[in-house]
Amino acid sequence: MSKRSPKSVEEKLEAVLSHLEKGQSLSQLSRRFDVAISTLERWIRRYQSDGEDGLVESRTWKKYTSELKQAAVEDYLSGQRGLNTICQKYGISSKSVLVRWIKEYTSGKEIKATSKGLSRMKQGRKTSFEERVEIVNFTIAHEKDYQAAMEKYGVSYQQVYSWVKKFEKQGSQGLVDRRGKGLESKPNLTTEEELQLKIKQLEERNRYLEAEVGLLKKLEEIKRRNQR
């Protein structure tokens, strides 16, 4: 099963500047760099917000105050700006993070600060190979929303980050826990099993997109009512 290789800061910068300074379209750059358009949009937002430093992928849980989260959600619901613009304005890591906040807000849940320090982060836990595969599939399908995966599966941010990086470099074999074991313990996935793994990832991505589209339709209706 083919994998998209992780991109260096230099490659990300080249892609961003090709769009901002040379006017190349996102669809062209998506094919050229073999990344999703949503990934390119995320790089551009981070570059415009933090410069080249924003293209260095963080290994830590990004902290957001409850005030920032509420301001971003209300700004979007006002109908004046789109998801990409809001993410850039408030320094939000991805659209999926903002959509999650909006979903919580519109369902009546209290918006709380994401974190008050690294000491508050979840501790890692022991997981099976099958769990790690499922967690990685979920994370990639949700635009690498490490925080959402951490909260959904009860693992640490660092675990999710590490598994995704290993999967991108080595495929499913990178998710094998070899501590205290020999190479013979490495599971041998068949071509059919690898294909099923890819299908599950695509199915998860489709579920995410369908949920996002449904939420955005609901939010458009809310914005129209607010503007009357």
Results as ranks from 00 to 15, higher is better:
residue 184 E to R: 14
residue 37 I to C: 02
residue 91 G to R: 04
residue 224 R to A: 15
residue 98 L to R: 06
residue 87 C to D: 04
residue 106 T to E: 14
residue 95 K to E: 12
residue 194 E to L: 15
residue 160 V to E: 00
residue 108 G to Y: 07
residue 32 R to I: 10
residue 24 Q to E: 13
residue 75 D to Y: 06
residue 200 K to D: 12
residue 227 Q to C: 09
residue 139 T to F: 07
residue 136 V to M: 01
residue 140 I to S: 04
residue 104 E to V: 00
residue 148 A to L: 14
residue 71 A to M: 08
residue 84 N to G: 08
residue 106 T to S: 10
residue 78 S to D: 12
residue 17 L to V: 05
residue 77 L to M: 04
residue 15 A to F: 08
residue 1 M to L: 12
residue 213 V to Y: 07
residue 131 E to T: 11
residue 104 E to T: 03
residue 139 T to K: 06
residue 68 L to S: 10
residue 197 L to H: 13
residue 91 G to K: 03
residue 101 W to D: 04
residue 174 G to M: 06
residue 92 I to P: 00
residue 54 G to L: 06
residue 5 S to R: 13
residue 48 Q to H: 09
residue 59 R to C: 06
residue 89 K to E: 11
residue 186 K to Q: 12
residue 168 E to Q: 15
residue 11 E to K: 07
residue 59 R to L: 11
residue 55 L to S: 06
residue 179 R to N: 08
residue 103 K to F: 02
residue 226 N to T: 07
residue 223 K to V: 15
residue 80 Q to E: 13
residue 198 K to E: 15
residue 204 E to N: 11
residue 110 E to D: 13
residue 127 T to Y: 10
residue 46 R to T: 01
residue 213 V to Q: 13
residue 54 G to K: 05
residue 35 V to Q: 05
residue 120 R to P: 02
residue 124 G to P: 12
residue 33 F to R: 04
residue 81 R to F: 12
residue 42 R to A: 14
residue 44 I to A: 04
residue 38 S to E: 15
residue 174 G to L: 06
residue 75 D to G: 08
residue 85 T to S: 14
residue 163 W to M: 02
residue 67 E to R: 14
residue 12 K to P: 09
residue 133 V to P: 11
residue 118 L to K: 12
residue 71 A to V: 00
residue 225 R to E: 13
residue 49 S to H: 15
residue 107 S to N: 13
residue 1 M to P: 00
residue 114 T to H: 05
residue 13 L to P: 10
residue 176 V to W: 14
residue 76 Y to R: 04
residue 33 F to V: 05
residue 190 T to C: 06
residue 138 F to A: 04
residue 23 G to R: 02
residue 118 L to Y: 08
residue 94 S to L: 03
residue 124 G to H: 05
residue 200 K to I: 02
residue 169 K to A: 09
residue 199 I to Q: 15
residue 83 L to W: 06
residue 59 R to Y: 10
residue 130 E to A: 14
residue 33 F to C: 05
residue 169 K to L: 11
residue 137 N to V: 00
residue 2 S to C: 00
residue 77 L to P: 00
residue 209 L to F: 08
residue 192 E to G: 07
residue 82 G to Y: 06
residue 158 Q to L: 14
residue 199 I to N: 12
residue 102 I to E: 01
residue 215 L to D: 01
residue 56 V to G: 02
residue 119 S to P: 00
residue 40 L to G: 11
residue 151 E to H: 11
residue 149 A to S: 15
residue 18 S to R: 12
residue 41 E to S: 10
residue 72 A to Y: 01
residue 98 L to H: 02
residue 74 E to P: 00
residue 221 E to M: 14
residue 69 K to S: 08
residue 96 S to A: 08
residue 74 E to R: 09
residue 176 V to G: 01
residue 85 T to M: 09
residue 93 S to K: 04
residue 21 E to M: 03
residue 216 L to Q: 05
residue 126 K to H: 09
residue 66 S to W: 04
residue 189 L to R: 08
residue 52 E to L: 00
residue 193 E to V: 07
residue 223 K to S: 11
residue 211 A to R: 13
residue 40 L to K: 08
residue 43 W to S: 07
residue 20 L to T: 07
residue 59 R to W: 12
residue 215 L to Q: 01
residue 3 K to W: 10
residue 77 L to C: 03
residue 9 V to Q: 13
residue 203 E to Q: 14
residue 96 S to K: 02
residue 72 A to G: 04
residue 147 Q to H: 11
residue 136 V to F: 03
residue 71 A to Q: 14
residue 132 R to K: 15
residue 62 K to G: 02
